[in-house]
Each structure stands twice: as C-alpha cells, then as structure tokens.
Design a protein around this nucleic acid. Structure first.
Lengths: 234, 234
DNA sequence: AAATGGTATTATGTATACACAAAACAATTT
DNA sequence: AAATTGTTTTGTGTATACATAATACCATTT
C-alpha cells in the first residue's frame, strides 16, 4: 500500500433532522402529503422510526422554506399555494432568474459554458423520450448550471428554494400540450445569449421563459379546475 | 354591552423560541455577538434562563436566515459577511427592491400612498435631527410601506430578511458624509415615480438608491479597513 | 333533545437525560 | 523535547419526560 491513503468520508454524515427534512419535503412536493394535511409530530416520528426532536426541527425548516404553515399551539399543516401565491412566487422568480441569466452572460467560464451546453443537449434528448420525470430532472440540472454560472451563491440558494416551492405543480405544467418543445426553444435562446455574452438578451430570454412557464401552469390549473387552495383567499 | 364583542388577544402569545430568536438576532445585528463568535447552546440557555430546546430552534432559524453558520457536530458560529457576500446580497436586493418599486407604482392604493408620504416626511425630519438610530428606524418604516405596496407578501418577507442581513453594517453606511441627504433625495425620486404611477421610473430610482447605498457602504468599509470577514475568501 | 359543565385525551412547548463525537489535556514513550 | 497514546471534558445530536393548552367526549341538567 504505497500511496493508498484511506479516506473514508465522514463528510457525508447527515444529521437525522436533515434526512427527515428531505424525506418530508419530498413527500410534500410529490403530493404524498397533501396541502392542508395536519402534521402530527409523534405520528411522523413513529412512522420514520425517530424521536420527535428531529421531526420538530425538520418541520421548522419546512416552515421557513414555505412548505409548512404553523399555527401557535395548534400544530403544523402542509402549505398549499393559492393562485395568488403562485403568481407572487413567479413574480419573484422571473426577476431573479432573469438576474441570474444576466450575470451568467457576464461571468460564465468556458468550462461552465460547456456544461451548460451538455445539459441543453441532455434536455433535448429527454424531451424526445417523452418521459416527463426525466425531463423535469434534466430541466433542474440545466438551471442549476445556469444558476451557478451567475457566481452569486446566495442567488443560487434562493432560486433553488423558489423552484422547489412550485415543483409540486411542475410536472402539471410540463404536461400542457406543446409546452416541452416551447420550453426547449426558450432554453436555447437563453444559452445562445449567454454564449454570445449578451447580458440584456439573456435576461430577456429568461424572463420570457418564466412568463411562459407561468402561463402554461395557470392554464393547466384552470382546466383541472383545481382548488389547490384550501380555505384561503383568491 | 350591546355590540361589544370581547376580543381578548391570545395572539400576542409568543413561543419562547421566537423570543430567543429575536433576542439573538438583535444581539447579532447590533454587534453584541460578533462575527465568528461561537454559539454554545447551554451557555446561551443559561444566560437567558431557558432550556436548550428553544435556543436550538432559534439557532436553526438564524442559520436559515443567514445570521449563523452551523458546522456538523461542531456547533454554530455568528456569520460574518465577506465583501463578496455583501456584494452578492446587494445584487439580489437591488433587483428585488426595484421590483417592489415597480409593482408599487402599479398597485399602490391611495391610503398607502399617503402613508408613504408621511414616512418620507418623517424621514426628512429625523435626518434634520441627525440622530442616526432614528434615521435608520424611519428608513425601515419607509421601505416597509413601500414593500407592502407591492402587494406581494412573499416579496415583503424576502426583502425584510435581506435588509436584516446587512443591517449590521447599516449605520456605518449612513455615517458616510453626505450619505443621508443623498439618500433622502433618492427616496423622494422613488416616491415621485410611484405617485405618478410610473413603474419604469420607480424601478430605476430604486435601483439607483441601492447602488448608491452599496457604494457608500463599500467606501466606508474600505476606510475602516474592516476585515468583517474572518478566515473566509475574498 | 339541547345545552352546559366537567373530564379525559391528545399534542404542542419546554425541560432534561443520555450517547457519542470532538477537542483539550495529561501521561507515557521514544 | 517531540510524538504518540490514553483520558477527561465539553458540546452537539437525539430521545424522553413533564406541563399545559386545545380538543373531544361524556354526563348531567334543564
């Protein structure tokens, strides 16, 4: 064993609260925990085979990220987004996605640009395969590269969070007829502007992308006549 | 007691974790807890006369809001913002403040507009008095009205949070010679654009306001030759 | 049967207890 | 003295215990 250093990764240790948090978020985003549903700490703890403490901490974190609503001394409920809230989130996302694209156009490195193009190609391929889940994943990967290219770490985490918020309604939006190919075109426009280092155009392309994503989501929601909202305004 | 419904406010009950959270944030923002300082749960709990639980929950919340950095199994530390991180925050704030101003110009109600003008007058008065703390407060009140006028609740909370993040360095920036009167002018420009319902101008005025706030902060920091940063990059 | 009052149950908020990792320190060896 | 190992201390991570608010249930009264 000449050079063989043994490196066993203690870094991938995750506190239980993290694991619980991720599991619960996944359950909410995927819809297994429905909006309005009550979250009882002991019940969840028993189900997951842990104590209340990590569950509590996970719930608190979910609250701060907008997935859960807590009422004083009453308990926690899965948050549902009202149409008004969805519009609010999109208003913010549009602005920030647009900012990210602008910054990326200014700051992207050669390596990142190649990554971005690879992601775009991958997205294209997944769209051809018509597997919605794969498309969603590829889309996320694409935007992640785009975000990091902005060089603003805080922006990356805010955008990731906002995306998670509406992820619940995401596949719905993509199932809107023709949405996927339109989205692909929008992605291409963004990449083009970034490649040519044109911040203004990149920002505009990102804005259009968001607007059209919002529009198709709203459209689908109308059709399904969803009352995502439960006893809340608008 | 004909119509007199008795409404006794149970709403002002606050869980301990909230109280602890607010106390700790105040301590960090005001500098009593300095960047890099270690936060030991039992120590804080004893000092405040509570148990570890609410302290832990408060620390978690502070972490999510960026005031505290946690290291696995090592503990929590007061976060310091590096110059790079300050720039990152300003990049985001500029964009969102600008969005808020734009939306306010579109949506502000008559009542809100009057409020806004009152806050502006108040700010003017406080600036004449030269009490920095009062000016900071008035400035916050002004922007709060502006934010709500955007009609986007999520935007309000995101902006409040971002403001808190740099509040630590705020009075420093205002102490920069001439900064206060310049800021007053910028505020007037924003109010003017909103009054005339000119979204584009409001957005631009807000952007300028942020840019100049950032510039004067950076300037002051250079002079004080601060190493706000502790063992972090840039 | 409806309304009121009281009791039991459930779940949150907070405190404490226990386990183990990390760091600090001391002791032993070279 | 330097290095290595063992030991102690400290503090986080998790589990559990206890107190009290909120709710549900039941009984009693009218």
């Amino acid at each position: 064993m000449t050079d063989g250093r043994i490196i066993l990764n203690m870094d991938n240790y995750k506190p239980l609260r993290e694991i619980v948090f991720e599991a619960m978020r996944e359950a909410i985003v995927s819809g297994r925990l429905a909006p309005g549903e009550r979250l009882v700490e002991i019940k969840l703890a028993d189900e997951m085979g842990v104590s209340r403490t990590p569950v509590r901490e996970a719930i608190r974190k979910l609250e701060l990220e907008g997935f859960v609503i807590m009422m004083q001394r009453k308990g926690a409920y899965v948050a549902g987004l009202s149409p008004k809230e969805i519009r609010d989130v999109f208003e913010i996302r549009s602005t920030l996605e647009s900012l990210a694209a602008r910054l990326a156009a200014e700051r992207i490195t050669q390596v990142q640009l190649e990554q971005l193009k690879r992601q775009l190609a991958d997205l294209e391929e997944k769209i051809r395969s018509h597997e919605i889940e794969a498309v969603v994943k590829a889309d996320i990967a694409f935007h992640d590269v785009l975000f990091s290219a902005s060089g603003n770490a805080r922006l990356v985490s805010m955008l990731s969070n906002l995306r998670e918020q509406i992820h619940r309604y995401r596949s719905m939006s993509l199932s809107y007829p023709g949405r996927m190919s339109v989205a692909l075109g929008e992605h291409r426009a963004i990449v083009k502007a970034i490649t040519e280092h044109k911040p203004q155009e990149a920002a505009e392309a990102a804005l259009e992308h968001m607007d059209s994503a919002e529009a198709s989501l709203i459209e689908v929601m109308k059709k399904v006549h969803m009352s995502i909202n439960d006893e809340r305004e608008e």
